Deep mutational scan, measured.
Amino acid sequence: DESNKPILLPNESQSFERSVQLLDQIPSYDTHKIAVLYVGEGQSNSELAILSNEHGSYRYTEFLTGLGRLIELKDCQPDKVYLGGLDVCGEDGQFTYCWHDDIMQAVFHIATLMPTKDVDKHRCDKKRHLGNDFVSIVYNDSGEDFKLGTIKGQFNFVHVIVTPLDYECNLVSLQCRKDMEGLVDTSVAKIVSDRNLPFVARQMALHANMASQVHHSRSNPTDIYPSKWIARLRHIKRLRQRICEEAAYSNPSLPLVHPPSHSKAPAQTPAEPTPGYEVGQRKRLISSVEDFTE
């Protein structure tokens, strides 16, 4: 099969070098950035008060330690540790928490760990991170309901609301924008112990962030949302095809390698009803078989 044979790379090609550099910018793992907010007593309706908090309760602090690993920003190499735009020179604080497994990295933009500057009256330095995160974990210690939209931002799609209760338990629920209701189930609340709260809140936030990324990708319907490693695979396959075309153009005697095509017509299947918005969006999480067989 010609399409699977190794090909020689061009010795000097600026377009090839640019493509390789672009490939280096696509990590081999999925990345997520999640905002974390603490809401104190009497702050449920005040964005400024929430963003001005420099610490929270003892249970909130224990919750943070379970979310991930504490890292010092100045020691991080952005090409190895995903920071979601946090500055490593102290502009966004000294520490944050991050978490990773074999296929993804997540960083938490924690408002109480970011510096509260006197010259920044409206807390814009914090909002440029927190307001651009799709998902926020809100530790609501106010005793009042927290409403979506209290923290203004164009991309605040989903809130994971943590409400501490007695007996070391917590109520965990989801809020989302109306255009996200087909992807996020907000109907079920959970009672979770303090011990298990970081794991549950983190998983709910990661799932909500993946759904938000799919939702946000609708602005470019021709580019369905893939995982990062599938995006790398697609980029490599496009690069291979372009090299083959350039080689055939410079030397017409060489065969032009095309991806294999299936001449056999697909079997006719009964027509199915058109899937609704929710089903269609969830299918976009699934990769096409052509990603692996071309």
Results as ranks from 00 to 15, higher is better:
residue 294 E to V: 06
residue 272 E to R: 11
residue 212 S to G: 03
residue 250 S to Y: 08
residue 189 A to V: 15
residue 254 L to K: 15
residue 258 H to Q: 14
residue 219 S to H: 10
residue 15 S to A: 12
residue 242 R to L: 15
residue 163 T to G: 01
residue 158 V to N: 01
residue 263 S to H: 10
residue 145 D to K: 05
residue 198 P to K: 00
residue 276 G to K: 08
residue 60 Y to A: 01
residue 22 L to K: 15
residue 173 S to I: 04
residue 227 S to N: 12
residue 33 K to L: 06
residue 263 S to F: 08
residue 227 S to H: 05
residue 58 Y to I: 08
residue 42 G to I: 01
residue 14 Q to N: 07
residue 242 R to F: 14
residue 95 F to D: 04
residue 185 D to R: 02
residue 263 S to V: 08
residue 83 L to M: 07
residue 19 S to I: 13
residue 138 V to Q: 00
residue 159 H to T: 11
residue 145 D to L: 04
residue 72 E to A: 11
residue 93 G to L: 13
residue 224 I to L: 05
residue 39 V to E: 00
residue 87 D to F: 02
residue 152 K to I: 05
residue 181 E to A: 07
residue 71 I to S: 07
residue 157 F to D: 10
residue 130 L to A: 04
residue 38 Y to C: 00
residue 101 D to A: 01
residue 47 E to S: 02
residue 274 T to M: 10
residue 168 E to W: 03
residue 3 S to D: 15
residue 192 V to W: 01
residue 258 H to K: 13
residue 238 R to K: 14
residue 32 H to M: 13
residue 25 Q to K: 11
residue 285 L to M: 10
residue 37 L to A: 02
residue 11 N to H: 13
residue 140 N to C: 00
residue 34 I to P: 01
residue 288 S to A: 14
residue 143 G to R: 07
residue 21 Q to G: 08
residue 211 A to Q: 03
residue 153 G to P: 02
residue 76 C to W: 07
residue 16 F to Q: 07
residue 227 S to F: 11
residue 75 D to C: 05
residue 91 E to I: 08
residue 185 D to W: 01
residue 131 G to K: 14
residue 27 P to A: 07
residue 258 H to T: 14
residue 283 K to G: 11
residue 285 L to C: 09
residue 248 A to L: 06
residue 2 E to D: 11
residue 195 R to T: 10
residue 100 H to T: 15
residue 36 V to A: 01
residue 70 L to T: 05
residue 37 L to V: 07
residue 194 D to C: 00
residue 235 H to N: 12
residue 276 G to F: 05
residue 267 A to V: 07
residue 252 P to W: 15
residue 159 H to F: 15
residue 99 W to R: 02
residue 253 S to M: 15
residue 108 F to M: 02
residue 38 Y to K: 00
residue 100 H to Y: 10
residue 9 L to E: 15
residue 30 D to Q: 05
residue 265 A to E: 12
residue 169 C to H: 04
residue 231 A to F: 04
residue 194 D to Y: 00
residue 164 P to E: 00
residue 238 R to L: 12
residue 167 Y to E: 04
residue 33 K to V: 07
residue 271 A to W: 08
residue 4 N to K: 09
residue 41 E to W: 07
residue 197 L to S: 03
residue 220 N to V: 09
residue 112 T to F: 01
residue 252 P to K: 10
residue 252 P to I: 10
residue 272 E to K: 08
residue 34 I to T: 01
residue 223 D to F: 07
residue 9 L to Y: 09
residue 220 N to G: 05
residue 148 L to P: 15
residue 47 E to K: 01
residue 122 H to T: 14
residue 190 K to L: 14
residue 136 S to M: 09
residue 279 V to N: 14
residue 292 F to M: 15
residue 218 R to Q: 12
residue 195 R to S: 08
residue 271 A to D: 11
residue 127 K to V: 10
residue 77 Q to K: 11
residue 40 G to C: 02
residue 208 A to D: 01
residue 12 E to Y: 07
residue 124 C to M: 15
residue 147 K to Q: 11
residue 218 R to D: 06
residue 167 Y to V: 03
residue 76 C to G: 14
residue 122 H to I: 06
residue 119 V to F: 12
residue 155 F to S: 14
residue 249 Y to R: 11
residue 88 V to T: 14
residue 289 V to W: 06
residue 166 D to W: 01
residue 271 A to C: 09
residue 282 R to P: 13
residue 47 E to N: 02
residue 191 I to N: 03
residue 256 L to I: 11
residue 172 V to G: 00
residue 245 E to Q: 09
residue 125 D to H: 15
residue 139 Y to K: 00
